[in-house]
Design a protein around this nucleic acid. Structure first.
Lengths: 118, 118
DNA sequence: CAGCATCCTTGATGATACTG
DNA sequence: CAGTATCATCAAGGATGCTG
């Protein structure tokens, strides 16, 4: 009920998050790769509005962290496919937990927000 | 294995997140309130470095969304206690799922990151 | 097609000082 | 104590144009 609270009890680290997940695109990219490999341009479609620069940055970080694989085919025009690794796939579980919460409780959040006049 | 990808398959909304959770403090605040009500200044300690301004903003948003209650006692000096609502408490579940993932897989992320030379 | 290179905007956050 | 009020900062993200 009281006493010492651990500042890092949730994130497990001081300030900078160790892994890039809570940013704007990583989770969406993982969702888009759920059903199989996708090409760079295939990802741009569902992630409407993402610029190639940002998409590249995100994919590079995810590749560096072992979440996705990158396969470049020596063709013209070039073709590059991204796919989830086992590690990346394992993130679908906590993501599903968040989605489940969202489906169940977002209406309550909406209600609370309106009840307090924005 | 292919075809139309839903841009909002993960977040459930277009751009702006409907609820403020993925920010820097909300999840930590929820964790700090897990074992009971806390005062404003009690929260500042474990959330080391958080300025009163930012803590106020976070708590206000959480209150607006029905995640926490705010109880001000008419005393001198003033005392204000924040506590999780049932809704706020329900967020502990998906948070636990994320923590579980972290405990299990962060070492693999570290390894992957080193194996790729940062 | 799959990106780089550049420049720019913006919101979340921080530092500091002050108040009921 | 529990904030409020300003100002400053910085990195994520975006816009645009170019290239192998």
């Amino acid at each position: 009920m009281s006493e010492p609270l651990d500042p890092d009890m949730f994130t497990g680290c001081d300030t900078a998050p160790l892994i890039r997940i809570g940013d704007k695109w990583t989770a969406k990219i993982i969702a888009c790769l759920r059903d199989g490999p996708r090409r760079f341009s295939e990802l741009q479609v569902p992630l409407r509005g993402v610029t190639p620069k940002v998409l590249t940055e995100s994919l590079r970080a995810m590749h560096r962290d072992g979440l996705v694989t990158r396969t470049a085919y020596e063709e013209v025009p070039p073709r590059v496919e991204y796919a989830l690794t086992q590690l990346g796939r394992s993130l679908l579980e906590p993501m599903a937990a968040c989605c489940a919460w969202s489906r169940r409780h977002l209406p309550a959040v909406q209600a609370a927000r309106e009840a307090s006049g924005l």
